[in-house]
Design a binder for these strands. Sequence first.
DNA 1: CGCCTTCCATGATCCAAATCAATTCCAGTG
DNA 2: CACTGGAATTGATTTGGATCATGGAAGGCG
Lengths: 231, 231
Amino acid sequence: MEHAPYTVCKTCTIRTKSFCGALPVRSLDSLANTRRLVRFERRQTIVCEGATAVSLFNIVSGVVKLYRSLPDGRTQIVGIRLPGEFFAIADGEKYTATAEALTSVVVCRFSRSRLKQLMQQFPQIQARLLEMSYRHLAAAQDQIFLLGRKTAREKVASFLMRYSGKFDPERMDKYRRVPMTRTEIADFLGLTTETVSRVLTSFAREKLVAIDLSHSVRLLNIDLLRKIAGN
Amino acid sequence: MEHAPYTVCKTCTIRTKSFCGALPVRSLDSLANTRRLVRFERRQTIVCEGATAVSLFNIVSGVVKLYRSLPDGRTQIVGIRLPGEFFAIADGEKYTATAEALTSVVVCRFSRSRLKQLMQQFPQIQARLLEMSYRHLAAAQDQIFLLGRKTAREKVASFLMRYSGKFDPERMDKYRRVPMTRTEIADFLGLTTETVSRVLTSFAREKLVAIDLSHSVRLLNIDLLRKIAGN
DNA sequence: CGCCTTCCATGATCCAAATCAATTCCAGTG
DNA sequence: CACTGGAATTGATTTGGATCATGGAAGGCG
């Protein structure tokens, strides 16, 4: 799991600098010393639901899905985390969801106990975590509304509007690849693979999207998709 | 909206004391001075989705529902807040959900901008907010799983396990009243009133619950209900 | 007390999405 | 290059919960 050499996370350092502004250099060093970079390939599990929470992570690059599942196989993705965001910020002793890499991912691992000390020393870090958890709470509310009250078409349209292109920011508006299988999209939207597939082909027939080789989705009519997504 | 006299919130002060431990008394006073108690009756709206976020609230007593709705009438409760918890902690400029009193509620209103200053002064307050937002994030994940993957029976059973009795803690195990209409329960669980009603009467037939006058629900077979709820 | 009004229960019917069931399509791989 | 296995599409059928419709019970109020 942790082959990566002991490296300082540049992304975090940069972010830390911008957020912690006036911190003395020595503080930044001590911050850096509590972190290390770890790389995960697509489909690798980063943390497991129910395991004792020892670390928390900041994403340097790549995308991570958080999911929960029941013994009978029912699975639900409860969140998607993009570069710069934190995950596995558990409330108590245990992780509340499993985290798995959706793309190649480089994460910055923080020791939980050490971070607690650092937060006391540098409130700016805490402020950043707080701000981010509000954003995630608002995103969770979006998903709750989507799951509770939207139709399959609305769900898929919302998903495309929200996430397509977020996976490789360089080619953002050209291809908007979504490196998720139909099953994963279904597990995000509370649907089945078949339904996701049917909705996507129906969108393709209506010229709302184009489905290229390797299942890349390109958005053709963003305005109409936004209208279908509703809010 | 704001008839209440300018009063210090004892609950908050007590909590603040326990969480802020070593703060000097003068700090606590300055904290207290930024707060005031406000009372809302059942069905009164406390804040509106989309309105500019100026305050945030701590619940002294009572229960609050947070919901979002679409122009076509579809409504989804995205969270329930119990005594001691904060709400309307918005990410940006606007509230992300409407907050409405489910019971008589006494809340402690904090000015957003002032709290920001205070947080910088007293990291302990920030730590408490952070801890609470993690808990709410975990609760949101529960709800996401429930909405995406559970059946109507499982949803209702989960709801009863989670919330019955939380509304008047004194009589916790005697009656477990749930002061929500069938419609509100439906809007929480992503169902319709009719389905909630049918599931509850079927639970009553199976002696899992008893439905008393004024629609109080009493749980009769908690073990079996927990099993139905799944996790 | 009787008249609303809101909430709840329950039956009949419908429908969106799930389930079941084949193919088809690729991306590897030897 | 053919083989293989996971992923996607597509069709047929079923079904859980929505929708429609009606009647009853409870609380509020003139």
